[in-house]
Design a protein around this nucleic acid. Sequence first.
DNA 1: TTTGAAAATGAATATTTATTCACTTATATT
DNA 2: AATATAAGTGAATAAATATTCATTTTCAAA
Lengths: 190, 190
Amino acid sequence: MKLKDDKKVIQIFQAALKLVAKKGLSGITMGDISREAGIATGTVYVYFKGKDELINALFAACRENSVKVSFKGYQPQMPFKLAFKHIWLNILRYKLQNFEECVFLEQCYHSPFITTETREKALQLSAPFYELMMRGQQEQLIKSTDVGLLLTFIIGTINELVKQTHYGGITLNRSKINTSFDLCWDGLKA
Amino acid sequence: MKLKDDKKVIQIFQAALKLVAKKGLSGITMGDISREAGIATGTVYVYFKGKDELINALFAACRENSVKVSFKGYQPQMPFKLAFKHIWLNILRYKLQNFEECVFLEQCYHSPFITTETREKALQLSAPFYELMMRGQQEQLIKSTDVGLLLTFIIGTINELVKQTHYGGITLNRSKINTSFDLCWDGLKA
DNA sequence: TTTGAAAATGAATATTTATTCACTTATATT
DNA sequence: AATATAAGTGAATAAATATTCATTTTCAAA
């Protein structure tokens, strides 16, 4: 008996991500994906019931990955600003290095593929970020406004920075990264 | 002789925007658009050669509109911070009230529909924003860093705020709008 | 009012794309 | 090594979608 090959799923995912970043969610077909992954079209259907299931699974995988990576190396005993910058940089690095995932996630947001269920599961993943910001407020280091507003502010600055970097509007370097962090931090600080 | 009806183009555009915001660029068909616009499928082809041309035309129209609206009521003699807040609010209001246009623009960014030509024309439209920021720097009111970085920061915060507002993550009111502006301004100020 | 040129129509057609399935291949288990 | 079971294949089929076109309707100009 032959067993399903986890590597195949990864191949399929990576092919889909690459194509979505290049052509958008509207521009990819199952044929494209299988070709890019180097397998037969039918094989994709061994791993996923259809296009919908494939897209939903990839969406879930990307969301989980993004959260996991963001908190990598975070130690609660770090001083807040240091911890915050650590995570801020993690997120930035993740988004720069996994731009395809980010594009995919953004495109999915307004697509008929993603089910309400998948969407809700994704939302629950932001809990750790809320906790982090509340810690900063307790230590009176950052403004004591609606945490949702603060997170929106933070994520917004990073997202746009990544987008502009990838489209050549900005050439990022160490100094610009620090400047961008300072823009964000100066906005947040109490 | 019957003449082409400008209102039809607007009907088609609005139908397309509504559908893209609801289902994403990947979820719309020419049939959907014509039905939503209340006209026959063939009629769409009287106004546009095909789907590609329709999407490109809509993209260009949305970009132009967004810039025009952003600078509405801007008087160069206004004190900088006031002028800046005026425009900041214009952009926010525009994006909130024309969410469908924003979604459409975002989705187009990574789609096979938009041609390089359309893309380049869109880029040129950001010139007035650069000038505004340079004025603020000359008056030593905002940080003297790369203007592209500052604009990215500003637009990012607004974009994410709008997105979260529309997806129920945030319920915006006057106070939250001011808080968000302050986050942005405190980040920018020299 | 008549006319004709162009818009509007939507069923028919062409094209693209998702999905299936009869078949082949690979490999765990015996 | 033999067997069985599931993966892998890709051409064939089904389904969805874009586009065309013969026909009808509209309306500006004569």
